[in-house]
Design a protein around this nucleic acid. Structure first.
Lengths: 347, 347
DNA sequence: GTTAGCACTCTCAATAAATGAGTGCTAACA
DNA sequence: TGTTAGCACTCATTTATTGAGAGTGCTAAC
């Protein structure tokens, strides 16, 4: 059977209607609401064909048709037009985003908030994976007799630090020397590389005081490096699912919330996704609990290298086109805001 | 009417039963399950009295009784025995908590997770209010030709920093001088005090290069101070409410989720609560949406001064005694872990 | 190939009836 | 005077029944 012009038109109308109403759509409604130029009976015949081809389903005999996952995939691949955001909306999003640019994590969190507000879906935003981030320098700063601060700065502008309480007093000169040695040893290494190095050996010297200090500082240093590798996931608009008819059912809402609550698993799943704008529909998602959801994600870059992700999760019935545009606009702007090297930003 | 021994015993039994079953309890059930030594008919008479006194309510004529808010208050004030946690549980909680002690925020987040796991309720943990935190030193570190790191260390061990991209190149000597000036000006001031100072004036000098640098650094400095004041709220166990029969109703679940989703308001409400272990039941909560919930919170201290909070929110029917104990145990341990001054911890 | 017409299917909402848990009251009892 | 058994009554909950409505599939006519 052929997916001719008319069938496509009808399918598109059904998708459009179902996406906005969430109700199975019947032949009469269709012929009244959309200018298809044919009678309900003809539409019925075509719908029967479309169903046979797998693009439509039936909740039960006397109900209207609704798009199948295959239909959404066809729509996303072939029928969807690029949605151009109105300038006013772009401006307001950018305003809202830049208003809060400071620490990366805060901005990312804020981006998730913006996204859920606009889409009325549950949004998420992931801070960048930092394993390829390159160490720039390490500094040990005296605070008081027993306290020092360990500070690690990386290319991406990421700064980690930790106040350390020492068991014994230290000597400032040794501290300075150790800072230098550590910087010399680790500068230019990625965080992952640094973690595989035999760190104590690397900065070993003959000085007793120094070795003692090293022994105290190193565990914290490694712990900080590990912390820097951690990816944070921010979510927003959890309650939005209650606005979605599909989830007006306690069990489904529950399933969804549980999915969302397993943040570690969810983060893992996100990390594994391909870069760029990616739409996965229903069973295209690996995770079993996501098989009646769709995910749209896109990637942003920090310092042109580190990759973070941002997106929404919702029912397979969603406004793929509009939502994709918003997500892309946000990731583009994040990338712009965090182009650290060579940029002229003063943040 | 008098709240005699027998009435108290019956009331306690009703509370106990209702807390674990969530079902209104009838006279027959009561006489069978608890050793009250009287017949259902007698219990019925007493229950009618208790209802008249305001300790019990009736969902409808032919249903059993359930405790009123007044009953829970009586229970918490007078009848509740201190629940001593079994040593095994204490150990496992402490293990789980200390396993992750590093940056304060991570630990706090983790504490919330532990709490929700144990109580099967929705938990929250707030990082300390830092307005009384005292600045210790300010440091400006060179990174590369155009980049410096601004670092602020406070008494509580809180370290804030921000990589700054400058419009023009800087000179290391000036940078060092500015660090010294700033430390001199702000050392010993609380963050709140620092924010009210006319900062630019404070470090004003005759040097042109210095004033230029100051102009660039200061906005970021103030922004960092403001960021340091921010209180973070971590929540966990959101999906636990779905396990609670009271919320097996879409509307109520929705209400609850919305309450939780308004994090700013929720944080404000928490900040206003009194210190120490505090139990508020139903309408004792100011917030309208919380009037059918109970809250238990307790405070922990960082460096003996800064105050953070931790607790749970759930239906008025909850195990006040056990939960209070867990919360107190957690806050005690947090306070211990973050006793920075004078302690012997090496974290 | 398209359309009107009609029987048929199935869900959903409304109504009614049966069920059962639990009370309140009365009268008898210790 | 306090306690208890007995029983009528109440009200939520469950199950069954019915009717309306939306929509299809098929047939026959155009």
């Amino acid at each position: 059977m052929d997916l001719n012009e008319r069938k496509l038109k009808i399918l598109q109308a059904i998708i459009q209607d179902f996406v906005s109403t969430a109700e199975p759509v019947g032949s009469r409604t269709l012929s009244k609401k959309y200018e298809l130029g044919v009678s309900p009976a003809t539409i019925r015949n075509e719908m029967a064909d479309l169903e046979e081809m797998g693009y439509l389903t039936h909740p039960h005999t006397s109900a209207g048709r609704m798009p199948s996952q295959k239909a959404y995939r066809l729509y996303v691949n072939e029928m969807m037009k690029k949605h151009e955001l109105p300038q006013a909306e772009k401006d307001s999003i950018a305003d809202e985003l830049y208003k809060n640019v400071s620490e990366l994590d805060r901005t990312i969190e804020h981006a998730a908030k913006i996204l859920s507000n606009i889409t009325n879906l549950t949004s998420f935003a992931m801070t960048p994976k930092k394993d390829q981030d390159v160490l720039k320098f390490i500094n040990l700063l005296p605070v008081d007799e027993r306290t020092i601060v360990l500070m690690i700065v990386s290319e991406s502008g990421k700064v980690s630090n930790l106040a350390l309480k020492l068991k014994t007093e230290y000597d400032e000169e040794t501290l300075g020397l150790l800072s230098k040695n550590m910087t010399y040893a680790f500068k230019g290494k990625t965080i992952s590389e640094a973690l595989t190095m035999d760190i104590i050996d690397t900065v070993h010297t003959d000085m007793k005081a120094m070795n003692e200090l090293t022994g105290t500082v190193m565990p914290s240093f490694m712990k900080s490096l590990e912390d820097m590798l951690n990816v944070n996931l921010y979510m927003d608009g959890l309650t939005n699912i209650f606005k979605i008819p599909e989830y007006n059912d306690l069990d489904r809402a529950k399933m969804f919330m549980e999915l969302i609550d397993r943040k570690e698993d969810f983060t893992k799943a996100l990390i594994q996704r391909d870069d760029g704008l990616l739409i996965t529909i229903g069973t295209e998602n690996d995770d079993e609990q996501m098989q009646d959801c769709s995910l749209i994600t896109a990637t942003y870059h920090v310092d042109g290298k580190l990759v973070g992700k941002l997106g929404v999760i919702g029912p397979t019935r969603m406004r793929y086109s509009e939502i994709s545009s918003v997500i892309e606009f946000l990731t583009d702007n994040l990338t712009k805001a965090y182009r650290l090297t060579g940029g002229d930003d003063d943040e």
